[in-house]
Simulated assay, not measured.
Amino acid sequence: MSEATPVWVVLPAAGAGRRMRAAEPKQYLRLIDTKTVMQCTLERLLGLGLERLIVAVAPGDTRAASVLELLEPEQKERVEILATGGNERADTVLNTLQALDGRAADEDLVLVHDLARPCLCRSDLDAVVTTAVASRFGAILGIPVSDTLKRCVPLARRDTELPITETVPRALLWRAMTPQVIRYAALRESLEQAERKWITDEASALEQSGKEVLMVAGRSDNIKITQPEDLALAAFLYRQQLENGLAFASEQRSS
């Protein structure tokens, strides 16, 4: 991790996670033992040596503060909760960047990571941050698409059993993941100028403004918890990574 370039970690946590079909937002679901997804992700990022973690919650959300109390005292000092949640992910990130006005410098890096990705490994973090530091605007993690892709005709009142219209070439297609690590001023300006309802990740805001973002190949086990069946898989991978030593700061980043 470059100590010359400050890194601010923004964790959007204002969504409802409707695709999980759960009674509560997915960040508060139990992942392993008594620990929630949020606690596991925070502990993973802190264990990887990251500082300046900002959890961006919806106004009125008090549960994040309760999760924070479960962390070690030294860890709690490195996490801040801000009620900067908006209607969409892009609104939440922009509100958080605006709240950092006067604290973050233009060339600082903003590392945006999904709270529902608790399985980030040291090698992926090192790779994407190193690339972002050396780039003009930033870099993101992703993996090449390996499945055959089909385009289907959208039908009213039905989202399954759709007619296929074509097979989409996949040679140049990648699945975008997080972290997405982008210069503070570039990300803020791009989000302020973008049509935010069409922005599904931070890189797409920069793409709209003509700024180049680099893709860094990541690990396939950096999964995002989206569907109910993802929870058990993430728990398995999380434990496995702990056992294999993939979840801790290297000697160079240890304090």
Score class of each variant (00 low, 15 high):
L100V: 10
L100H: 06
D101A: 15
G102Q: 14
R103I: 13
R103W: 12
R103N: 13
A105L: 15
A105D: 15
D106R: 15
D106N: 15
E107C: 12
E107A: 15
E107Y: 11
D108F: 09
D108W: 10
L109A: 09
L109Y: 08
L109T: 06
V110E: 08
V110F: 09
L111M: 13
L111C: 14
L111G: 07
L111R: 05
V112F: 08
H113N: 14
H113M: 13
H113G: 09
H113K: 13
D114M: 10
L115T: 05
L115F: 05
L115P: 01
L115V: 15
A116V: 09
R117D: 04
R117C: 13
R117G: 02
R117N: 05
R117I: 12
P118N: 08
P118E: 05
C119G: 04
C119R: 01
C119Q: 01
L120W: 02
L120E: 05
L120R: 06
C121L: 03
C121E: 03
C121P: 00
R122C: 06
R122V: 06
D124R: 04
D124H: 03
L125S: 04
L125Q: 03
L125D: 04
A127G: 08
V128Y: 03
V128S: 02
V128E: 02
V128H: 04
V128G: 03
V129W: 07
V129S: 09
V129K: 07
T130E: 07
T130L: 09
T131M: 11
T131I: 08
A132E: 03
A132Q: 04
V133A: 11
V133Y: 04
A134W: 06
R136N: 14
R136D: 15
F137M: 05
G138H: 02
G138A: 11
G138Q: 05
A139Y: 03
L141W: 02
L141N: 02
L141I: 08
L141G: 01
G142Q: 03
I143P: 06
I143H: 11
I143N: 12
P144T: 06
P144G: 13
P144V: 09
P144K: 12
V145R: 14
S146I: 09
S146N: 10
S146C: 10
D147G: 05
D147E: 11
T148N: 10
L149Q: 10
K150E: 03
R151P: 00
R151H: 01
R151G: 00
R151I: 00
C152N: 11
C152Y: 05
C152K: 09
C152R: 10
C152D: 04
P154K: 09
P154N: 10
L155F: 04
A156D: 13
A156M: 14
R158Q: 14
D159L: 07
D159R: 13
D159F: 09
T160A: 14
T160Q: 12
E161Q: 12
E161W: 07
E161N: 13
L162D: 05
P163V: 06
P163D: 07
I164G: 00
T165A: 07
T165M: 01
T167L: 09
T167D: 07
V168W: 01
V168S: 00
V168A: 01
V168Q: 00
P169T: 02
R170Y: 02
R170V: 00
A171W: 02
A171Y: 01
A171K: 05
L172C: 04
L172N: 08
L172E: 04
